[in-house]
Design a binder for these strands. Structure first.
Length: 293
DNA sequence: TTCCAGGGGTAGA
DNA sequence: TCTACCCATGGA
């Protein structure tokens, strides 16, 4: 086994990021019950599979332990795994303007103290897109099952653990066979189309994760994907550190009803107006309300 | 069997 | 832009 440290920004909280939303429960992630260790399987440039163990370290930093490397970890592999770690824990996201704004709101000051708001991500934008698509119109248990079965399409290591499949690996399946395996219903066609367009080079979704891109611009591109409506597109923006859209789902509406309208059914417009003063971070503030529920 | 979930799509106002 | 309505489908 080999390992190294990845420096995290000041105020980074490993556990808060890990439990920031349900992603830690989706394959190929695995986690410890104290939320202080996250595992995943990924591949090096030569295609070999490695198991990665992430844990918090002083600094703040993240300790990355790598299992499955034959011989010494090459410098290029270490660079790639460092980039992967930074992406998964969203380490390049600058939270200082967000926290500066929230300091003026007594209700949300806890976010900075706990290092909340930095959302856990998958290894690639492609994988985040797939997982987000699998959260739509289903139960959380259904999401976990569908993602687990999609992950089974990826390569397998000696211990039987799978890395998440590439777009080409998904696109290589016929729709009927894919549906029979992953049982994602109507989402299967959307998944196959997304995988096919990326594999063909028609879409370069990895470049959508760019702080320099306007939120509205990325939002429009997301909405053009089959199966991505306002909810799914807003979730993706949040993962990219763009917080100016509300991801309104049944959970958000129910939380709002309990916390702000004494159980009365709010309209989406009411909810939007309530969070508007927090722009451009209203999506995150809604998320904070969901977390404390 | 029924019901619903961490909605999407579309038509019409 | 917003609302109303229909549609999808695996799982509890």
């Amino acid at each position: 086994m080999t390992g190294f440290l990845v420096t995290a920004p000041a105020g980074f909280n490993f556990r808060s990021t890990m439990i920031s939303h349900g992603w830690l429960m989706l394959a190929p992630f695995d986690y410890s019950d104290d939320y202080l260790r996250l595992q995943t399987i990924d591949r090096l440039d030569d295609g070999s599979l490695v198991q990665l163990n992430f844990a918090p370290a002083a600094g703040p930093a993240i300790r990355v332990e790598v299992e499955g490397v034959k011989g010494r970890l090459r410098a290029a592999s270490k660079r790639r795994l460092t980039e992967l770690t930074r992406r998964i824990f969203n380490l390049d996201l600058d939270m200082t303007p967000v926290y500066r704004r929230l300091r003026t709101e007594a209700r949300y000051r806890w976010a900075e103290q706990r290092g909340a708001g930095r959302l856990l991500r998958a290894a690639t934008v492609w994988e985040d897109l797939v997982k987000t698509l699998m959260t739509t119109n289903t139960t959380w248990a259904g999401t976990r099952n569908m993602v687990k079965r999609i992950t089974e399409l990826g390569p397998q290591d000696d211990a039987g653990r799978h890395a998440f499949p590439t777009p080409a690996e998904v696109a290589g399946h016929r729709q009927q066979a894919l549906q029979e395996h992953i049982r994602a219903g109507y989402r299967t066609a959307y998944l196959l189309e997304l995988a096919g367009r990326i594999a063909a080079g028609e879409l370069d979704v990895e470049r959508w994760d760019d702080p320099a891109l306007e939120s509205d611009d990325v939002y429009q591109r997301l909405l053009e994907l089959k199966g991505f409506g306002p909810y799914a597109a807003s979730v993706m923006l949040k993962l990219m550190g763009k917080f100016d859209r509300l991801a309104l789902d049944t959970a958000a509406r129910s939380m709002y009803a309990q916390q702000f309208t004494e159980g009365g059914k709010p309209t989406d417009r009411q909810i939007r107006e309530h969070y508007q003063p927090y722009a451009p971070y209203q999506g995150l503030v809604l998320w904070l309300d969901l977390m404390v529920e």
